[in-house]
Amino acid sequence: MNYNKITENIIGCAIEVHRALGPGLLESAYQECLFHELENLGYSVKKEIIQSIIYKDKKLDHGYRIDLLIENSIVIELKTVEKLTDVHSAQILTYMKLGDYPVGLLLNFKTKLLKNGIKRFVNTLE
């Protein structure tokens, strides 16, 4: 799977959504529009995926929710915050680790230019 090409397409779709809507909406609005754009490109897209955690040998399905999962491989975490922090990076890295996903994108739509709100992550623990 060509993760670089897919993430390039995801970023292109996210920029299209941001141009159309601008900053200032809830994450859910961007999520729905990005979901629509990616499906139109023919990608397998799932939203609000429950990511289980294992705690003391017990599987718990009340762990995390992945905003979007593309092609069962690429985690998309959407934010609408003033500034991305280390906690946001830790969050997506945790999703990637728990699900053994190879690539992740952290997208902050509360920016004047979306390119300033994009971080790409690679799971080096594969």
Results as ranks from 00 to 15, higher is better:
Ile10Val: 05
Lys115Asn: 11
Gly104Ser: 02
Leu41Glu: 02
Glu27Arg: 13
Ile53His: 03
Asp61Met: 14
His36Asp: 03
Lys5Ile: 12
Gln51Trp: 03
Gly117Val: 11
Thr7Ile: 14
Arg65Lys: 15
Ser52Glu: 15
Glu126Leu: 13
Val75Trp: 01
Lys79Ser: 09
Cys33Ile: 08
Asn2Arg: 15
Thr111Pro: 13
Asn116Lys: 11
His88Val: 11
Glu27Tyr: 06
Glu16Asp: 05
Lys47Met: 14
Ala90Gly: 15
Val81Tyr: 05
Leu84Cys: 06
His18Gln: 08
His88Pro: 14
Thr124Glu: 06
Tyr55Asp: 00
Arg19Val: 11
Thr7Met: 15
Lys110Met: 06
Lys112Ser: 09
Asn123Asp: 09
Asn72Trp: 01
Ser44Asn: 10
Ser44Pro: 04
Gly99Leu: 01
Ser52Asp: 12
Lys112Gln: 07
Met96Asp: 12
Asn40Phe: 04
Leu113Lys: 10
Gly117Phe: 08
Glu82Thr: 12
Lys110Tyr: 11
Ile6Val: 01
Phe35Cys: 07
Tyr30Gly: 00
Ile50Leu: 15
Lys46Cys: 14
Lys97Tyr: 13
Leu125Pro: 01
Lys79Met: 11
Gly42Cys: 11
Val87Lys: 10
Gln31Lys: 13
Lys46Asp: 15
Asn2Cys: 14
Val17Trp: 12
Lys115Gly: 05
Lys58Leu: 08
Val75Met: 06
Glu27Met: 10
Ile76Glu: 04
Glu39Pro: 00
Lys115Glu: 13
Gly42Trp: 06
His36Ala: 01
Leu34Gln: 06
Leu114Ala: 03
His18Tyr: 06
Lys119Trp: 07
Leu21Glu: 02
Leu84Gln: 08
Val45Gln: 01
Leu114Ser: 02
Asn108Pro: 01
Arg120Ile: 10
Ser52His: 13
Val45Phe: 02
Gly12Glu: 05
Thr94Ile: 05
Asp57Met: 03
Leu21Asn: 07
Val122His: 14
Asp86Gln: 13
Lys56Gly: 00
Ser73Gly: 09
Gly22Phe: 06
Met96Cys: 10
Ile6Tyr: 00
Arg65Phe: 05
Gly42His: 08
Leu25Ser: 05
Asp67Gln: 09
Arg19Trp: 09
Lys119Thr: 07
Pro23Phe: 10
Glu37Ile: 01
Val81Thr: 11
Lys58Gly: 00
Leu114Pro: 01
Cys33Leu: 14
Gly12Tyr: 09
Lys56His: 09
Ser73Leu: 05
Thr124Val: 15
Leu21Ser: 03
Leu125Glu: 12
Asn123Pro: 14
Glu77Met: 01
Lys112Tyr: 05
Thr94Gln: 06
Gly22Pro: 09
Thr7Ser: 14
Glu71Val: 05
Gly42Ala: 10
Arg65Leu: 15
Leu113Pro: 04
Ile66Cys: 14
Lys79Glu: 07
